[in-house]
Design a protein around this nucleic acid. Structure first.
Lengths: 240, 240
DNA sequence: ACCAGGTTGTGATCCGTATCACGCAGCTAG
DNA sequence: CTAGCTGCGTGATACGGATCACAACCTGGT
Protein backbone atom coordinates (compact mmCIF):
# COMPACT_ATOMS: atom_id res chain seq x y z
CA UNK A 1 0.00 0.00 0.00
CA UNK A 2 1.09 3.56 -0.59
CA UNK A 3 2.46 5.61 2.27
CA UNK A 4 1.20 9.11 1.73
CA UNK A 5 2.28 11.95 4.02
CA UNK A 6 5.05 9.77 5.41
CA UNK A 7 2.69 7.32 7.08
CA UNK A 8 3.16 3.59 7.46
CA UNK A 9 -0.32 2.37 6.72
CA UNK A 10 -1.91 -0.19 9.03
CA UNK A 11 -3.38 -2.73 6.65
CA UNK A 12 -6.18 -4.29 8.65
CA UNK A 13 -7.83 -4.18 12.03
CA UNK A 14 -6.94 -7.85 12.49
CA UNK A 15 -3.24 -7.12 12.44
CA UNK A 16 -3.43 -3.81 14.29
CA UNK A 17 -1.31 -3.81 17.42
CA UNK A 18 -3.51 -1.28 19.14
CA UNK A 19 -6.57 -3.42 18.91
CA UNK A 20 -6.40 -5.19 22.25
CA UNK A 21 -6.36 -2.17 24.48
CA UNK A 22 -8.78 0.06 22.62
CA UNK A 23 -12.36 0.24 23.64
CA UNK A 24 -14.04 0.11 20.29
CA UNK A 25 -11.59 -1.80 18.14
CA UNK A 26 -11.49 -4.97 20.19
CA UNK A 27 -14.55 -6.62 18.65
CA UNK A 28 -15.29 -10.31 18.25
CA UNK A 29 -14.08 -11.77 14.97
CA UNK A 30 -17.47 -11.81 13.27
CA UNK A 31 -18.23 -8.20 13.93
CA UNK A 32 -14.72 -7.15 13.03
CA UNK A 33 -14.95 -8.95 9.73
CA UNK A 34 -18.13 -7.13 8.97
CA UNK A 35 -16.60 -3.84 10.08
CA UNK A 36 -13.66 -4.37 7.75
CA UNK A 37 -16.00 -4.70 4.83
CA UNK A 38 -17.64 -1.30 5.35
CA UNK A 39 -14.68 0.78 6.42
CA UNK A 40 -12.61 3.00 4.15
CA UNK A 41 -8.99 3.25 5.22
CA UNK A 42 -7.88 6.80 4.47
CA UNK A 43 -4.92 9.02 5.18
CA UNK A 44 -4.83 12.73 5.90
CA UNK A 45 -1.96 15.21 6.01
CA UNK A 46 -1.28 17.44 8.99
CA UNK A 47 -3.80 20.24 9.31
CA UNK A 48 -6.63 18.43 7.50
CA UNK A 49 -10.17 18.93 8.72
CA UNK A 50 -12.16 15.73 9.16
CA UNK A 51 -15.41 17.47 9.94
CA UNK A 52 -16.67 20.84 11.04
CA UNK A 53 -19.04 21.69 13.84
CA UNK A 54 -22.53 22.14 12.49
CA UNK A 55 -22.22 19.84 9.47
CA UNK A 56 -24.70 17.02 9.00
CA UNK A 57 -23.04 13.75 10.07
CA UNK A 58 -21.48 11.81 7.22
CA UNK A 59 -20.17 8.98 9.33
CA UNK A 60 -17.62 7.96 11.92
CA UNK A 61 -13.85 8.25 11.88
CA UNK A 62 -11.83 5.68 13.78
CA UNK A 63 -8.44 7.15 14.45
CA UNK A 64 -5.67 4.61 13.84
CA UNK A 65 -2.57 6.78 13.76
CA UNK A 66 -1.74 10.39 14.58
CA UNK A 67 -3.42 12.99 16.77
CA UNK A 68 -6.60 14.94 16.08
CA UNK A 69 -7.55 18.23 17.68
CA UNK A 70 -11.19 18.47 18.74
CA UNK A 71 -12.46 21.98 19.16
CA UNK A 72 -15.55 24.06 19.47
CA UNK A 73 -15.78 27.56 18.10
CA UNK A 74 -17.86 30.65 18.72
CA UNK A 75 -19.30 32.89 16.04
CA UNK A 76 -16.78 35.60 16.81
CA UNK A 77 -13.80 33.35 16.25
CA UNK A 78 -12.91 32.32 19.77
CA UNK A 79 -11.88 28.66 19.91
CA UNK A 80 -11.95 26.16 22.72
CA UNK A 81 -9.94 22.97 22.33
CA UNK A 82 -11.73 20.15 24.09
CA UNK A 83 -9.14 17.48 23.73
CA UNK A 84 -6.56 15.94 21.51
CA UNK A 85 -7.72 12.52 20.37
CA UNK A 86 -5.31 9.60 20.31
CA UNK A 87 -5.35 6.42 18.20
CA UNK A 88 -8.23 4.10 19.04
CA UNK A 89 -10.77 6.84 19.52
CA UNK A 90 -13.90 7.07 17.44
CA UNK A 91 -14.70 10.57 16.23
CA UNK A 92 -18.07 11.84 15.10
CA UNK A 93 -19.73 8.98 16.90
CA UNK A 94 -22.46 10.74 18.78
CA UNK A 95 -23.50 12.86 15.81
CA UNK A 96 -23.67 9.77 13.62
CA UNK A 97 -25.77 7.90 16.14
CA UNK A 98 -28.20 10.71 16.85
CA UNK A 99 -28.30 12.17 13.36
CA UNK A 100 -27.73 15.66 14.68
CA UNK A 101 -24.96 17.90 13.44
CA UNK A 102 -21.37 17.32 14.50
CA UNK A 103 -20.87 19.11 17.81
CA UNK A 104 -17.17 19.75 17.26
CA UNK A 105 -14.56 20.36 14.67
CA UNK A 106 -11.87 17.72 14.14
CA UNK A 107 -8.54 18.74 12.68
CA UNK A 108 -5.43 16.58 12.35
CA UNK A 109 -2.31 17.68 14.21
CA UNK A 110 -0.10 15.11 12.52
CA UNK A 111 -0.40 13.02 9.41
CA UNK A 112 -3.18 10.58 10.32
CA UNK A 113 -4.60 7.27 9.31
CA UNK A 114 -8.31 6.97 9.75
CA UNK A 115 -10.96 4.35 9.11
CA UNK A 116 -14.05 6.06 7.84
CA UNK A 117 -17.47 4.40 7.87
CA UNK A 118 -20.52 5.91 6.25
CA UNK A 119 -23.36 6.64 8.61
CA UNK A 120 -25.89 4.34 6.93
CA UNK A 121 -23.40 1.49 6.81
CA UNK A 122 -22.52 2.08 10.42
CA UNK A 123 -26.10 2.10 11.65
CA UNK A 124 -26.84 -1.09 9.75
CA UNK A 125 -23.71 -2.61 11.26
CA UNK A 126 -24.89 -1.69 14.74
CA UNK A 127 -28.28 -3.27 14.23
CA UNK A 128 -26.69 -6.51 13.11
CA UNK A 129 -24.05 -6.66 15.82
CA UNK A 130 -25.36 -6.20 19.31
CA UNK A 131 -21.89 -6.57 20.83
CA UNK A 132 -20.60 -3.66 18.79
CA UNK A 133 -23.53 -1.61 19.91
CA UNK A 134 -22.53 -2.08 23.52
CA UNK A 135 -19.03 -0.95 22.64
CA UNK A 136 -20.49 2.15 21.10
CA UNK A 137 -22.44 2.82 24.26
CA UNK A 138 -19.23 2.45 26.23
CA UNK A 139 -17.38 4.84 23.95
CA UNK A 140 -20.17 7.36 24.27
CA UNK A 141 -20.13 7.06 28.04
CA UNK A 142 -16.43 7.68 27.90
CA UNK A 143 -16.95 10.81 25.85
CA UNK A 144 -19.71 12.00 28.12
CA UNK A 145 -17.45 11.48 31.05
CA UNK A 146 -14.67 13.58 29.65
CA UNK A 147 -17.18 16.24 28.65
CA UNK A 148 -18.27 16.38 32.29
CA UNK A 149 -14.67 16.81 33.36
CA UNK A 150 -14.35 19.66 30.93
CA UNK A 151 -17.49 21.26 32.29
CA UNK A 152 -16.22 20.91 35.82
CA UNK A 153 -12.94 22.54 34.96
CA UNK A 154 -14.54 25.36 32.98
CA UNK A 155 -17.36 26.03 35.34
CA UNK A 156 -15.86 25.56 38.76
CA UNK A 157 -12.09 25.86 38.90
CA UNK A 158 -12.05 29.52 38.46
CA UNK A 159 -8.49 30.66 38.29
CA UNK A 160 -6.46 30.14 35.15
CA UNK A 161 -3.44 28.97 37.16
CA UNK A 162 -5.55 26.15 38.55
CA UNK A 163 -6.64 25.01 35.12
CA UNK A 164 -3.14 25.08 33.72
CA UNK A 165 -1.82 23.03 36.62
CA UNK A 166 -4.60 20.48 36.09
CA UNK A 167 -3.79 20.29 32.40
CA UNK A 168 -0.11 19.65 33.05
CA UNK A 169 -0.90 16.93 35.57
CA UNK A 170 -3.33 15.33 33.12
CA UNK A 171 -0.65 15.26 30.46
CA UNK A 172 1.93 13.63 32.68
CA UNK A 173 -0.68 11.01 33.59
CA UNK A 174 -1.35 10.23 29.93
CA UNK A 175 2.31 9.94 29.09
CA UNK A 176 2.77 7.24 31.69
CA UNK A 177 5.12 9.59 33.52
CA UNK A 178 2.74 9.98 36.39
CA UNK A 179 4.63 7.69 38.70
CA UNK A 180 7.93 9.50 38.40
CA UNK A 181 8.96 12.08 40.90
CA UNK A 182 10.07 14.55 38.28
CA UNK A 183 8.06 13.72 35.19
CA UNK A 184 8.98 15.11 31.80
CA UNK A 185 6.55 15.98 29.09
CA UNK A 186 6.75 17.27 25.59
CA UNK A 187 4.90 20.46 24.88
CA UNK A 188 3.54 19.72 21.44
CA UNK A 189 1.18 22.68 21.50
CA UNK A 190 1.77 26.41 21.28
CA UNK A 191 0.86 28.77 24.09
CA UNK A 192 -2.03 29.94 21.99
CA UNK A 193 -3.39 26.38 21.77
CA UNK A 194 -2.88 25.75 25.46
CA UNK A 195 -4.79 28.95 26.13
CA UNK A 196 -7.62 27.61 24.00
CA UNK A 197 -7.63 24.41 25.99
CA UNK A 198 -8.13 26.12 29.32
CA UNK A 199 -10.25 28.98 28.04
CA UNK A 200 -7.89 31.85 28.66
CA UNK A 201 -5.66 34.17 26.65
CA UNK A 202 -2.26 33.46 25.20
CA UNK A 203 -0.61 36.15 27.32
CA UNK A 204 -1.95 34.67 30.51
CA UNK A 205 -0.47 31.28 29.63
CA UNK A 206 2.91 32.86 29.01
CA UNK A 207 2.75 34.68 32.32
CA UNK A 208 1.66 31.56 34.19
CA UNK A 209 4.56 29.57 32.78
CA UNK A 210 6.94 32.36 33.68
CA UNK A 211 5.62 32.28 37.20
CA UNK A 212 5.91 28.49 37.49
CA UNK A 213 9.52 28.72 36.31
CA UNK A 214 10.36 31.50 38.73
CA UNK A 215 8.94 29.42 41.55
CA UNK A 216 11.07 26.43 40.47
CA UNK A 217 7.99 24.29 39.96
CA UNK A 218 8.75 23.54 36.35
CA UNK A 219 11.77 23.94 34.14
CA UNK A 220 11.97 24.20 30.36
CA UNK A 221 14.45 22.12 28.38
CA UNK A 222 13.87 23.07 24.80
CA UNK A 223 10.37 21.93 24.04
CA UNK A 224 10.22 19.44 26.89
CA UNK A 225 9.06 20.46 30.29
CA UNK A 226 10.52 19.05 33.46
CA UNK A 227 8.26 19.09 36.47
CA UNK A 228 10.43 19.69 39.48
CA UNK A 229 7.80 20.00 42.14
CA UNK A 230 4.76 17.89 41.46
CA UNK A 231 3.39 18.48 44.94
CA UNK A 232 3.31 22.22 44.43
CA UNK A 233 1.58 21.73 41.10
CA UNK A 234 -1.08 19.59 42.74
CA UNK A 235 -1.47 22.29 45.35
CA UNK A 236 -2.18 24.87 42.69
CA UNK A 237 -4.51 22.51 40.85
CA UNK A 238 -6.69 21.88 43.87
CA UNK A 239 -6.61 25.33 45.39
CA UNK A 240 -10.07 26.63 46.07
CA UNK B 1 -51.29 1.37 44.44
CA UNK B 2 -50.34 3.87 47.10
CA UNK B 3 -49.85 7.52 46.23
CA UNK B 4 -47.02 8.72 48.42
CA UNK B 5 -45.97 12.38 48.41
CA UNK B 6 -49.13 13.30 46.56
CA UNK B 7 -48.18 11.44 43.41
CA UNK B 8 -50.51 9.58 41.07
CA UNK B 9 -48.46 6.52 40.35
CA UNK B 10 -48.07 5.39 36.75
CA UNK B 11 -48.67 1.66 36.95
CA UNK B 12 -46.83 0.29 33.96
CA UNK B 13 -44.76 1.40 31.01
CA UNK B 14 -47.38 -0.17 28.72
CA UNK B 15 -50.05 2.25 29.85
CA UNK B 16 -47.76 5.27 30.21
CA UNK B 17 -48.92 8.17 28.06
CA UNK B 18 -45.41 9.54 27.73
CA UNK B 19 -44.09 6.44 26.13
CA UNK B 20 -44.54 7.31 22.48
CA UNK B 21 -42.51 10.48 22.40
CA UNK B 22 -39.70 9.52 24.73
CA UNK B 23 -36.45 8.31 23.36
CA UNK B 24 -35.78 5.41 25.64
CA UNK B 25 -39.24 4.33 26.73
CA UNK B 26 -40.61 3.55 23.30
CA UNK B 27 -39.29 0.02 23.05
CA UNK B 28 -40.72 -2.93 21.13
CA UNK B 29 -43.12 -5.04 23.18
CA UNK B 30 -40.69 -7.87 23.87
CA UNK B 31 -38.00 -5.63 25.25
CA UNK B 32 -40.49 -3.60 27.23
CA UNK B 33 -41.89 -6.74 28.80
CA UNK B 34 -38.44 -7.74 29.85
CA UNK B 35 -37.74 -4.24 31.10
CA UNK B 36 -40.88 -4.29 33.23
CA UNK B 37 -39.68 -7.42 34.95
CA UNK B 38 -36.41 -5.89 36.16
CA UNK B 39 -37.52 -2.38 37.03
CA UNK B 40 -38.46 -1.17 40.49
CA UNK B 41 -41.12 1.54 40.45
CA UNK B 42 -40.25 3.93 43.26
CA UNK B 43 -41.37 7.32 44.49
CA UNK B 44 -39.30 10.11 46.03
CA UNK B 45 -40.32 13.26 47.90
CA UNK B 46 -39.11 16.68 46.88
CA UNK B 47 -35.47 17.26 47.73
CA UNK B 48 -34.47 13.59 47.66
CA UNK B 49 -31.05 12.69 46.31
CA UNK B 50 -31.03 9.86 43.79
CA UNK B 51 -27.29 9.64 43.53
CA UNK B 52 -24.23 11.68 44.30
CA UNK B 53 -21.29 12.52 42.10
CA UNK B 54 -18.44 10.14 42.82
CA UNK B 55 -20.51 7.17 43.99
CA UNK B 56 -20.07 3.82 42.30
CA UNK B 57 -22.98 3.27 39.90
CA UNK B 58 -25.86 1.27 41.37
CA UNK B 59 -28.03 1.43 38.29
CA UNK B 60 -30.20 3.64 36.13
CA UNK B 61 -33.16 5.82 37.04
CA UNK B 62 -35.84 6.38 34.43
CA UNK B 63 -37.70 9.51 35.35
CA UNK B 64 -41.47 9.07 34.93
CA UNK B 65 -42.85 12.06 36.79
CA UNK B 66 -41.45 15.22 38.32
CA UNK B 67 -38.27 17.18 37.74
CA UNK B 68 -34.74 16.29 38.79
CA UNK B 69 -31.87 18.73 39.19
CA UNK B 70 -28.55 17.50 37.82
CA UNK B 71 -25.53 19.25 39.21
CA UNK B 72 -21.81 19.05 39.57
CA UNK B 73 -20.01 20.32 42.61
CA UNK B 74 -16.51 21.47 43.48
CA UNK B 75 -14.61 20.55 46.62
CA UNK B 76 -15.10 24.03 48.04
CA UNK B 77 -18.86 23.90 47.75
CA UNK B 78 -19.50 25.76 44.52
CA UNK B 79 -22.28 24.13 42.54
CA UNK B 80 -23.02 24.14 38.84
CA UNK B 81 -26.46 23.02 37.72
CA UNK B 82 -26.17 21.29 34.38
CA UNK B 83 -29.81 20.83 33.63
CA UNK B 84 -33.19 20.01 35.01
CA UNK B 85 -34.28 16.60 33.77
CA UNK B 86 -37.86 16.03 32.62
CA UNK B 87 -39.92 12.84 32.51
CA UNK B 88 -38.65 10.32 29.99
CA UNK B 89 -35.01 10.94 30.70
CA UNK B 90 -32.69 8.21 31.90
CA UNK B 91 -30.38 9.27 34.71
CA UNK B 92 -27.14 7.62 35.71
CA UNK B 93 -26.97 5.95 32.34
CA UNK B 94 -23.43 6.65 31.31
CA UNK B 95 -22.01 5.73 34.70
CA UNK B 96 -23.93 2.46 34.67
CA UNK B 97 -22.72 1.61 31.19
CA UNK B 98 -19.09 2.46 31.76
CA UNK B 99 -18.89 1.33 35.37
CA UNK B 100 -17.21 4.56 36.40
CA UNK B 101 -18.54 6.75 39.19
CA UNK B 102 -21.61 8.91 38.66
CA UNK B 103 -20.42 12.17 37.13
CA UNK B 104 -23.22 14.23 38.64
CA UNK B 105 -25.54 14.56 41.53
CA UNK B 106 -29.27 14.06 40.97
CA UNK B 107 -31.74 15.68 43.31
CA UNK B 108 -35.52 15.83 42.95
CA UNK B 109 -37.14 19.25 42.65
CA UNK B 110 -40.68 17.88 42.96
CA UNK B 111 -42.14 14.64 44.22
CA UNK B 112 -40.99 12.15 41.59
CA UNK B 113 -41.79 8.73 40.28
CA UNK B 114 -38.81 6.81 39.05
CA UNK B 115 -38.15 3.38 37.60
CA UNK B 116 -34.93 2.04 38.99
CA UNK B 117 -33.01 -0.80 37.39
CA UNK B 118 -29.98 -2.42 38.97
CA UNK B 119 -26.80 -2.16 36.96
CA UNK B 120 -26.29 -5.91 36.53
CA UNK B 121 -29.88 -6.41 35.48
CA UNK B 122 -29.61 -3.52 33.08
CA UNK B 123 -26.42 -4.73 31.45
CA UNK B 124 -27.90 -8.20 31.02
CA UNK B 125 -30.99 -6.61 29.54
CA UNK B 126 -28.87 -4.69 27.04
CA UNK B 127 -27.02 -7.79 25.92
CA UNK B 128 -30.28 -9.58 25.30
CA UNK B 129 -32.03 -6.73 23.51
CA UNK B 130 -30.03 -5.17 20.73
CA UNK B 131 -32.80 -2.66 19.96
CA UNK B 132 -32.69 -1.31 23.48
CA UNK B 133 -28.96 -0.98 23.21
CA UNK B 134 -29.36 1.32 20.24
CA UNK B 135 -31.79 3.39 22.25
CA UNK B 136 -29.22 3.67 24.95
CA UNK B 137 -26.67 4.84 22.44
CA UNK B 138 -29.12 7.46 21.25
CA UNK B 139 -29.79 8.66 24.79
CA UNK B 140 -26.08 8.90 25.44
CA UNK B 141 -25.57 10.88 22.24
CA UNK B 142 -28.30 13.18 23.40
CA UNK B 143 -26.57 13.67 26.72
CA UNK B 144 -23.23 14.23 25.06
CA UNK B 145 -24.82 16.79 22.84
CA UNK B 146 -26.23 18.80 25.67
CA UNK B 147 -22.93 18.54 27.52
CA UNK B 148 -21.28 20.10 24.48
CA UNK B 149 -23.78 22.93 24.54
CA UNK B 150 -22.97 23.50 28.16
CA UNK B 151 -19.27 23.58 27.38
CA UNK B 152 -19.83 26.05 24.59
CA UNK B 153 -21.81 28.34 26.83
CA UNK B 154 -19.36 28.10 29.71
CA UNK B 155 -16.22 28.35 27.66
CA UNK B 156 -17.07 30.81 24.97
CA UNK B 157 -19.98 33.12 25.69
CA UNK B 158 -18.13 35.16 28.15
CA UNK B 159 -20.46 37.70 29.62
CA UNK B 160 -23.00 36.68 32.22
CA UNK B 161 -25.71 38.71 30.52
CA UNK B 162 -25.23 36.64 27.40
CA UNK B 163 -25.61 33.38 29.27
CA UNK B 164 -28.73 34.52 31.10
CA UNK B 165 -30.35 35.62 27.86
CA UNK B 166 -29.54 32.24 26.30
CA UNK B 167 -31.02 30.46 29.27
CA UNK B 168 -34.26 32.40 29.09
CA UNK B 169 -34.58 31.73 25.37
CA UNK B 170 -33.91 28.04 25.96
CA UNK B 171 -36.66 27.92 28.53
CA UNK B 172 -39.23 29.56 26.31
CA UNK B 173 -38.31 27.07 23.61
CA UNK B 174 -38.87 24.13 25.93
CA UNK B 175 -42.19 25.45 27.14
CA UNK B 176 -43.51 25.53 23.60
CA UNK B 177 -43.83 29.27 23.93
CA UNK B 178 -41.14 29.89 21.41
CA UNK B 179 -43.48 30.81 18.60
CA UNK B 180 -45.26 33.53 20.52
CA UNK B 181 -44.23 37.12 20.19
CA UNK B 182 -44.32 37.73 23.92
CA UNK B 183 -43.71 34.37 25.52
CA UNK B 184 -44.39 33.78 29.18
CA UNK B 185 -42.45 31.47 31.38
CA UNK B 186 -42.61 30.38 34.95
CA UNK B 187 -39.51 30.95 37.01
CA UNK B 188 -39.45 27.77 39.06
CA UNK B 189 -35.91 28.38 40.26
CA UNK B 190 -34.42 30.89 42.65
CA UNK B 191 -31.87 33.48 41.59
CA UNK B 192 -29.29 31.43 43.41
CA UNK B 193 -30.10 28.36 41.31
CA UNK B 194 -30.15 30.35 38.10
CA UNK B 195 -26.74 31.69 39.03
CA UNK B 196 -25.55 28.11 39.46
CA UNK B 197 -26.89 27.25 36.03
CA UNK B 198 -24.90 29.93 34.24
CA UNK B 199 -21.86 29.85 36.50
CA UNK B 200 -22.12 33.24 38.11
CA UNK B 201 -23.09 34.73 41.45
CA UNK B 202 -26.57 35.29 42.83
CA UNK B 203 -26.09 39.06 43.01
CA UNK B 204 -25.15 39.25 39.36
CA UNK B 205 -28.35 37.45 38.40
CA UNK B 206 -30.42 39.88 40.43
CA UNK B 207 -28.66 42.82 38.82
CA UNK B 208 -29.08 41.39 35.34
CA UNK B 209 -32.80 40.91 35.86
CA UNK B 210 -33.08 44.44 37.20
CA UNK B 211 -31.36 45.69 34.08
CA UNK B 212 -33.59 43.68 31.73
CA UNK B 213 -36.65 45.08 33.49
CA UNK B 214 -35.36 48.62 33.31
CA UNK B 215 -34.78 48.21 29.60
CA UNK B 216 -38.34 46.88 29.16
CA UNK B 217 -37.07 43.61 27.76
CA UNK B 218 -38.80 41.47 30.37
CA UNK B 219 -41.51 42.09 32.91
CA UNK B 220 -42.25 40.20 36.11
CA UNK B 221 -45.80 39.11 36.98
CA UNK B 222 -45.51 37.34 40.25
CA UNK B 223 -43.39 34.28 39.54
CA UNK B 224 -44.06 34.32 35.81
CA UNK B 225 -41.89 36.27 33.47
CA UNK B 226 -43.23 38.00 30.41
CA UNK B 227 -40.77 38.54 27.62
CA UNK B 228 -41.66 41.80 25.98
CA UNK B 229 -38.81 42.11 23.54
CA UNK B 230 -37.58 38.78 22.30
CA UNK B 231 -35.48 40.40 19.60
CA UNK B 232 -33.49 42.37 22.15
CA UNK B 233 -32.97 39.23 24.18
CA UNK B 234 -31.63 37.41 21.14
CA UNK B 235 -29.36 40.37 20.54
CA UNK B 236 -27.88 40.04 24.00
CA UNK B 237 -27.61 36.28 23.67
CA UNK B 238 -25.57 36.44 20.50
CA UNK B 239 -23.51 39.50 21.26
CA UNK B 240 -19.85 38.86 20.83
C1' DA C 1 -49.93 38.21 64.50
C1' DC C 2 -45.19 37.48 64.70
C1' DC C 3 -40.91 35.77 64.28
C1' DA C 4 -37.41 32.90 61.62
C1' DG C 5 -35.43 31.51 57.49
C1' DG C 6 -35.01 31.80 52.88
C1' DT C 7 -35.08 35.11 48.93
C1' DT C 8 -34.29 39.45 46.70
C1' DG C 9 -32.45 44.34 45.95
C1' DT C 10 -28.37 47.46 45.98
C1' DG C 11 -24.03 49.80 47.20
C1' DA C 12 -18.85 49.69 47.79
C1' DT C 13 -14.68 47.48 47.04
C1' DC C 14 -11.15 44.62 45.02
C1' DC C 15 -8.95 41.23 42.16
C1' DG C 16 -8.09 38.46 38.07
C1' DT C 17 -7.42 38.58 33.61
C1' DA C 18 -8.68 40.35 28.90
C1' DT C 19 -6.98 43.45 25.85
C1' DC C 20 -3.87 46.52 23.55
C1' DA C 21 0.71 47.56 22.27
C1' DC C 22 4.97 46.76 21.89
C1' DG C 23 9.94 44.41 21.21
C1' DC C 24 12.42 40.23 20.33
C1' DA C 25 13.79 35.65 18.68
C1' DG C 26 13.83 32.00 15.26
C1' DC C 27 12.56 29.99 10.70
C1' DT C 28 11.51 30.12 5.73
C1' DA C 29 11.61 31.92 1.47
C1' DG C 30 12.82 34.95 -1.92
C1' DC D 1 21.16 38.78 3.45
C1' DT D 2 16.82 40.63 4.32
C1' DA D 3 11.95 40.56 4.51
C1' DG D 4 8.16 38.43 6.57
C1' DC D 5 5.77 35.23 9.47
C1' DT D 6 4.76 32.95 13.58
C1' DG D 7 5.43 32.24 18.36
C1' DC D 8 7.07 34.19 22.81
C1' DG D 9 7.86 37.77 26.77
C1' DT D 10 6.23 41.77 29.24
C1' DG D 11 4.25 46.33 30.57
C1' DA D 12 0.08 49.43 31.19
C1' DT D 13 -4.67 49.85 31.43
C1' DA D 14 -9.53 48.85 31.89
C1' DC D 15 -13.46 46.30 33.03
C1' DG D 16 -16.48 42.60 34.47
C1' DG D 17 -17.97 40.36 38.05
C1' DA D 18 -16.87 38.08 42.74
C1' DT D 19 -17.35 39.13 47.30
C1' DC D 20 -18.83 41.40 51.51
C1' DA D 21 -22.33 43.72 53.98
C1' DC D 22 -26.91 45.18 54.86
C1' DA D 23 -31.74 46.31 54.27
C1' DA D 24 -36.23 45.02 52.63
C1' DC D 25 -39.07 41.32 51.60
C1' DC D 26 -42.13 37.44 51.47
C1' DT D 27 -43.15 32.75 53.03
C1' DG D 28 -45.03 29.44 56.23
C1' DG D 29 -45.18 27.80 60.99
C1' DT D 30 -46.65 28.09 66.09
Amino acid sequence: MLSPYGLDIIESCFTCKLRADRLFCDLPAGALQSFESIKYATAYPKGAVLFVEGQAPRGIYVLCKGRVKLSICSTDGKTLILKVAEPGEVLGLSASVSGKAYELTAETLDPCQVNFVKREDFLRFLKEHGEACLRVAEQLSEKYNSACHEIRSLGLSHSAAEKLAKLLLDWTAKNGEAAKVEPRLKLALTHEEIAQMIGTSRETVTRLFADLKKRQIVQAKGSTLLIRNKAALKQIASAS
